[in-house]
Design a protein around this nucleic acid. Structure first.
Lengths: 244, 244
DNA sequence: GAAGTTTTGTAATAAATGTTACTTATTAAG
DNA sequence: CTTAATAAGTAACATTTATTACAAAACTTC
């Protein structure tokens, strides 16, 4: 009997990463898992895609799940699927030759990664790294379908164009941040952004992690965070930042 | 008799800018002017668009010319036309609230400004400034046509997608430059880029202009250029940099 | 709860970039 | 040719960010 024939089996979240002790395996039925995914697909995308397309995505797409910090797509990895984000958040990072990282933007549920669009179009490899910011679920669409839909489905075409536009704006914002803002402003904006994204005043992160996202050093971040605390903008504790 | 009825009249380059003494008015016939534009359209775009589309562009598009340093599109300006670059080069700049500029990328003949695509799609205003880097000619397509073609012409659709991809890559490169490179590297890359673009080893520019493109101060550029000269990478004179 | 590990705090210093102020060179205009 | 305007050179200093080094605090593990 294969896993597929069994109505109840363990869905192991994030098969492509090592599980850490605190990461609990959930015992759910495969059908429940798929139902949840489809539910999310309808919820997040039914106002974007027409009925027929939703049905086709449901039929063709495969659902993948990732836990926090999983690498979803890495740099230079060839892309055969377009991901639609059903739940969670994904951060899109750039890396230089020396391994320095920089956060470019976040993806939220109901969005796609435009980078993967450009890669799939040009049959090239990923230029960015996508990392799960929270536990996340995706529905993956094979490139062939994506191409076909682009030529025969208007709602898909509009979705792609709107995605490009959103991402373009975010890239411009990333450029503005780097070119015109000092590190303290960049950090504060980063904190506010995180708070919005997680709809919680409390950010769970180490100074080191933040330093990597902003491509600076841990000491710089600690220094600035302490300064923010003195200005009563935030409250610091180990692994935790509360934005006031 | 209006200008249009006259077979020979002065085409004033860059009607939207003040002419400087050295800028010569060319006396050419209107029909020659249009013929040249159409010739360029065929030359630069016939391998991109199908025959029918070229014909339609020829019929619908209006040709505009700009001289060096003309502002073609400014920030917050509403966009009703998509420009296709027939000849010359255009630089795309970003500006912050304090008026600081930053060069994002250059456009070459045969390309379009993807920014204007995103703006036209969303019926929003320009987020960037486009400045003629050389004397340039454009063919302008009204937004309505652009929309229609997107839905019924595959070569146009592919052109748009490829434009997005090119521009995306260039935005990523701009981000890399800002995030990972020091000013000396950024400046050297800028010089090399200019040399390639103008297919000439000699760059005609003031240190102040370069400083603005890279969003730094004139003194910093002068210092670094002098350093490059000492390293025999370039040769400096007033308003001129020769790359060796 | 002792020992080890991880995270944060902080000072001292270095390097990169930005600013000010002034001089010198080059070109343009009369 | 002289004067004025513009561009470039340069020194001194300020600010921002990066680096190094180490100590203190907060958690983990046994």
């Amino acid at each position: 009997m294969t896993a597929c024939d069994c109505p109840n089996f363990y869905i192991v979240f994030a098969l492509n990463s090592l599980l850490k002790p605190h990461q609990i395996l959930l015992q759910i039925s495969k059908s429940l898992f798929l139902t949840m995914g489809k539910e999310l697909l309808h919820q997040k995308f039914s106002h974007i895609f027409d009925k027929d397309l939703i049905d086709e995505i449901e039929k063709i797409g495969t659902i993948s799940t990732f836990i926090k910090n999983d690498i979803i797509i890495d740099i230079d990895q060839p892309l055969q699927y377009i991901p639609l984000l059903l739940s969670g958040n994904i951060k899109i990072l750039r890396e230089d030759n020396d391994g320095n990282e920089l956060l470019i933007y976040f993806l939220e549920a109901g969005e796609t990664c435009t980078m993967s669009l450009t890669c799939c179009m040009g049959a090239s490899r990923s230029k960015i790294r996508a990392v799960a910011e929270k536990d996340s679920s995706l529905i993956m669409i094979p490139v062939q379908n994506m191409h076909a839909w682009f030529h025969n489905n208007e709602s898909w075409r509009n979705f792609i164009l709107e995605s490009y536009q959103t991402r373009f704006d975010e890239m411009l914002e990333a450029i503005d941040n780097l070119a015109f803002m000092k590190m303290d402003e960049r950090l504060y904006k980063y904190l506010i952004n995180k708070v919005k994204l997680h709809t919680s005043k409390t950010i769970i992160a180490k100074h080191q992690d933040i330093a990597e996202d902003l491509h600076t050093s841990r000491v710089v971040i600690s220094r600035l965070l302490k300064q923010f605390e003195n200005e009563n903008k935030i409250k610091l504790s180990r692994n935790k930042i509360e934005v006031l």
